[in-house]
Computed example of a mutant assay.
Amino acid sequence: MTYISAQPRLTDSWDDICFPVESVWLADLLPNYDIVATDRQQLIVGNIAGGRNTIFGIQSADYSVVPNTVIREVVDELIPQYKLLVQYTPTGEFSINIILPEVFRIGKESLQRSLILTNSYNGKTPFALQGQSFITLLHPDSVLRGSMYRGVCQNGLLGWADHFEDAAAYQTWLEEWSAASQKTRLPKNRPTGGRKGRPSPGIRTIHHSELTIDVFRQHLRDLLIDHLKPELTLTSEIYAQLQKREMRSRDEGLLRELPVPAQLAKQARERLRTEEQLLNVGPSYWLLYNAVNYALFTSRSSLTLNDRYRLDEQVFHQLAARSFA
């Protein structure tokens, strides 16, 4: 789904995204009108500091907005030391990157373990943790992906291969995925054995049914505690594989083959050259992946945050498949 063109902004302050937000019923706002559009009954209104009240969306009666202040409260409670980096749009979408102290090496680079939460006030991007919806993660068979932060270009990288038991299983799936013109569905999460029970009937989705903030807060807290257990992920192995694969003359047209809009591909090509100079290295699949990631999450586009993450995942798998070929 596409909508108004927007360019993500960067901030390292919670204050820029933790302004008051509330639901305002149309019937209260327009008491002298009979409202027959029953599929849209409430406005999501934010009070941004220094600005007028902003209407981010008009939603159904059972829509529940998740204030960023609640996310901040849980993060501050559980994580004593972290660095914050937020990408957000003026249309009310937020990608919140919690950067942890743990460091991993990919080639000569240092990456930090991180936690990525996405949220929105316009309904375009459902609340998600590490790229997975809240209801998916509440299932007892779910596994929480990892993520890493790359300081060179301030990229937040999701663990797109973390669903797999090992590299061999991932390579087998990549072969099937490539053969099916990249239309194969992702496999289900592997069982973790760490969660018991299923989501209560009161939690079926986060944006389409009633959900109290207290219930949300408790489940988010439990999920974060589970994630904060130190664990190396398969995706970090794939990063190392991409880093070892140098780009050669036969890869000259590779960027044109990736599923990103032409304008973003052009910006990715420019970013790739910039990183080669910054790091004083030749081009590799690792640098190319990060260049595309950078273009996706910093450029003006009509893509929603969900669209950007979806394309990022496709590019990751496509480059991984080629690196193993």
Rank of each mutant, 00 (worst) to 15 (best):
V281A: 11
V152R: 06
N53T: 05
Q182C: 14
I225K: 13
I58G: 00
L254N: 00
E22M: 12
Y121F: 13
A262V: 12
H227K: 14
R105F: 02
R204L: 13
W25A: 04
E313N: 10
T212V: 12
K124G: 02
A180Q: 13
C18N: 02
K229N: 14
N306G: 07
E73M: 08
S142N: 06
S110I: 12
L158S: 04
Y33H: 12
N189I: 11
P20F: 09
L30R: 12
N122F: 07
G156T: 09
G156E: 01
L186Y: 11
L254R: 04
Q7L: 08
S301W: 10
A167F: 07
G253D: 00
P259Q: 10
N97K: 02
Q41M: 13
F94T: 00
Q318V: 15
D166Y: 10
W160K: 06
F324V: 13
V75G: 04
D141F: 13
V70T: 01
G57H: 04
G46L: 11
R113L: 09
A265M: 10
F164C: 04
N119H: 04
V36I: 15
E165K: 11
F164M: 07
N290W: 04
E257M: 13
R204G: 12
A180M: 13
L311H: 00
A265R: 14
K266L: 13
V70N: 03
L43V: 05
G159V: 06
C153H: 11
R52E: 11
G92V: 14
V75R: 07
Q277M: 12
M1G: 04
E175W: 14
V36M: 13
L232D: 14
Y121V: 03
G202N: 07
A321Q: 08
A265S: 10
Y309T: 10
R40M: 15
D214T: 15
I203V: 10
A27G: 09
I17P: 02
V74F: 04
Q218D: 12
E252H: 10
D307I: 12
A49E: 09
F19R: 04
P67G: 02
N119E: 01
S302Y: 13
W173G: 07
V103C: 07
L84N: 00
P187Y: 02
G123N: 08
P31Q: 06
V103F: 03
E313T: 07
F216C: 01
Q277S: 15
M247F: 11
G253S: 09
C18S: 04
T172Q: 14
S114R: 08
T125H: 05
A37K: 11
V281N: 08
Q218C: 10
Y82I: 13
W14Q: 08
A321W: 15
V315R: 03
L138Q: 08
G202A: 09
S249M: 08
P20T: 14
Q41F: 02
Q7P: 00
G50Q: 08
L129N: 01
S181E: 05
A265T: 13
G146D: 02
V74L: 06
E175T: 15
S299M: 11
Q241N: 06
I206Y: 01
S13N: 08
T125E: 05
